[in-house]
Design a protein around this nucleic acid. Structure first.
Lengths: 192, 192
DNA sequence: TTATTTATGCAATAGAGTATTGCATAAGTT
DNA sequence: AACTTATGCAATACTCTATTGCATAAATAA
């Protein structure tokens, strides 16, 4: 008799339609629940139920709800950077801020859920990682500012400002917000 | 027969030496454990054990470990502001930054544990609240910057920078760090 | 000191949520 | 059609939070 192990379709590269459907359902379920309450108050059972999937199945794809949210956050921020980086490439600070803020504005409800629902810490980590990569190529050096601090500050305060913006019931315009971001975050970093 | 309820010495104003000792032991135990691992990985049982107190007793003083950490964080940040505000009162931006950074530097291990151990969110909230109070009196207005954003940014990025600084094995000097804080956080806020 | 109040220790217990396993079945793949 | 794989389902184990009743010892008031 061969010892049966816990079956795990798990690894994200699966092509099986059934697995893909389940993974998609789980992502959607978590995002839907994040509309109502923060991650800590969401149980795996609730996610599975909302996804129309058996509780056990959740663990065949993810180790926990945090990991699932990580996955979502990482992919979202990846997209954000891919669509925003080009604009940042130019030396026009305001254009970069504007591109970033526009993208977030166009995906408001998703980003609001991620930032205020419990993924802030993970989003911040990914944001820092990608910012670090970017800074390695385009960063400007200052004798008073260690590069890593610039990265932390740039990523951290951007997240900070975005979180505020996304929480507002009647948020200020993208243009005004981009101006704030440019003056408080970008300009101090490039100023000599 | 009178219905016996759960006895709660709880309220922080108790003068009973036994209760005071217990509360102090619990605070110390949590801080000690935060040296090794983040709050999520610490159980109430561990805190109680480390404090040399029965598990049940924990709940007679606190509703959970988060609340206990909140209590510690709130009192620490209160002290920080009381000792730092006077320096901020002067219009000398650098003096304010320096006073704040000096205080944190002198209480390095405690603040490192609070900021990196799980109290960051709570610390941030209190920091924002106190900053808001301060800004209401000393804040400078800009047509491009809603006062509340200035508060969020000032408090948030200060916490952000401090967290980085406190995590370094060989941190830069207080003076250099204060310069960074002044140039990245304070100056952009007061600049016209 | 004596009497009373109050804080803690201890044991029992309940409940929520996480995590795993074996087997059956159905959907996908070759 | 023969196989491989993903999910459903039921059972189960574990950890951690939280409460309760009673006994005891420490603190306070008489």
């Amino acid at each position: 008799m061969k010892a049966s192990k816990v079956y795990r379709p798990a690894n994200a590269t699966t092509r099986d339609p059934r697995a893909l459907k389940t993974r998609e359902a789980l992502r959607g379920a978590l995002l839907a629940l994040l509309d109502d309450k923060p991650l800590e108050e969401i149980t795996i059972r609730q996610i599975a139920a909302r996804a129309g999937v058996n509780y056990t199945t959740f663990f065949r794809h993810h180790t926990g709800k945090e990991e699932l949210l990580d996955e979502i956050a990482a992919s979202e921020i990846q997209t954000l950077f891919e669509l925003t980086m080009p604009a940042l490439d130019a030396d026009d600070a305001r254009a970069g801020s504007l591109a970033l803020c526009r993208y977030v504005d166009e995906h408001r409800s998703l980003w609001a859920r991620l930032l205020t629902g419990g993924a802030a810490a993970r989003l911040r980590e990914e944001f820092i990682r990608l910012t670090r990569e970017f800074a390695a190529e385009h960063g400007s050096d200052h004798e008073w500012l260690p590069p890593e601090v610039g990265v932390i500050f740039g990523a951290g305060s951007t997240i900070e400002l975005l979180t505020w913006w996304l929480q507002q019931a009647e948020p200020i315009s993208v243009e005004k917000f981009a101006t704030i971001h440019e003056r408080l975050v970008v300009r101090p970093l490039v100023a000599k």
